[in-house]
Computed example of a mutant assay.
Amino acid sequence: MSKRDYYDILGVSRTAEAAEIKSAYRKLAIKFHPDKNPGDKEAEENFKEAAEAYEILSNPEKRSRYDQFGHSGNSASGFGGGGMNMDDIFSQFGDIFGGGNPFENFFGGGNSRGGRRVQKGTNLRIKVKLTLEEIANGIEKTVKVNKQIHCQSCDGTGAKDKSSFHTCSTCGGAGSVRRVTNTILGQMQTTSTCPTCNGEGVEVTAKCTSCKGEGLVRGEETITFNIPAGVSEGMQLSMNGKGNAAPRGGVPGDLIILVEEVQHETLKRDGINVIYDLYINFSDAALGTSVEIPTIDGKAKIKIEPGTQGGKILRLKGKGIPEVNSYHKGDQLVYVNIWTPKAVSSEEREILERLKGSANFKPQPGKSEKSFFERIKEYFE
């Protein structure tokens, strides 16, 4: 089932400002929040869908990629917002509602979620080099990533053993503390992260000796992912939850994959088109010939018509790069260049001197083909 357009989900235009996007998401978050719609699976899915749309459209880089490439720009075969869970979503509320979980007061949720702060691991960035052939066809890549992983000794808790955990004496396990102050308008209640347990609700009295209580160690993970066909230099793909692990069982960060193009030996990329410079000698240009040229898919034989002029562009339709998230494919453009020898033998010079006097070898401006730039313009029109 295809994903809905993120702008349609939030009910905003494609030119909407950041404030409008934030406001639209806030309304949907309140409308579909699980505490307000207990047991309603449809509301829960709408809640997650709105959070995913906000995650992409509130981030300038992710929004730019989405506007250009659609869902594939941020999510292709395991990439992007599709893997958001409730911890991801509730971690957004500090930005949307100015801190804390507002639904405790709106819907009487109290400490139904413990009021505990969900920590998120940091994002990890890697570079992947791709050949022109891999870009044109798409490819599955497997890489080994050195990153922070959960400590195996303590299972990521940071504690020496189970007996090392104690409920926080300051917040009573809530992860947050409330303060009531008297103002001229009456009493005002504020909620903040517990300073003793840092929002986790528990205190560790004896730390794990392997990770020194951090719950994290350096490790290596083998990750496999698919690169869609048509990606370009500098494009970033994101895999949710494949970044550095978070302390105390929090939400892992994302793996950001930066695409680098490896320059091809003979072909050049121009958007979705591929360019090849073909050099032929004067005789072949005048008499015509067949030549074999490289393409992304292998070799191809093309015909050079008699009387071909230097600068002529031949087109091999559909031999270029596909557009991301589209069935459209570019072409291969063959630029014909006439090779002029820098030195000739005495015999060759004699032949050329005789030909120079022939009427067919004299420039004929009135009958000449269109200029190189005119042919380029006609091709793209």
Rank of each mutant, 00 (worst) to 15 (best):
M1V: 10
S2L: 11
Y6A: 12
E20R: 10
A29K: 05
K31Q: 14
H33Q: 13
G39L: 00
L57G: 10
P60M: 04
R65H: 05
N74T: 15
G83L: 11
M84T: 00
D87S: 08
F90M: 09
F97E: 11
R113F: 13
R113K: 13
Q119H: 02
A136G: 08
N137M: 06
G138R: 04
I139W: 00
T142G: 01
Q152N: 09
S153Y: 03
V177T: 12
R179M: 10
T181N: 13
T190M: 11
C194V: 03
T196G: 02
G199V: 05
A206D: 13
C208N: 03
G213W: 03
L216Y: 10
V217F: 07
R218T: 07
R218V: 02
F225C: 08
S238T: 11
M239F: 03
L258E: 15
L258V: 13
Q263M: 07
G271T: 01
G271Q: 06
N273R: 11
I275D: 10
G288L: 05
S290L: 02
K303Q: 05
E305V: 15
P306E: 06
P306G: 08
Q309G: 08
G330L: 06
V344T: 08
S345A: 03
R349M: 01
L352V: 05
P365L: 14
E369Y: 00
K370E: 14
S371H: 11
R375P: 01
I376A: 15
E378I: 05
F380I: 15
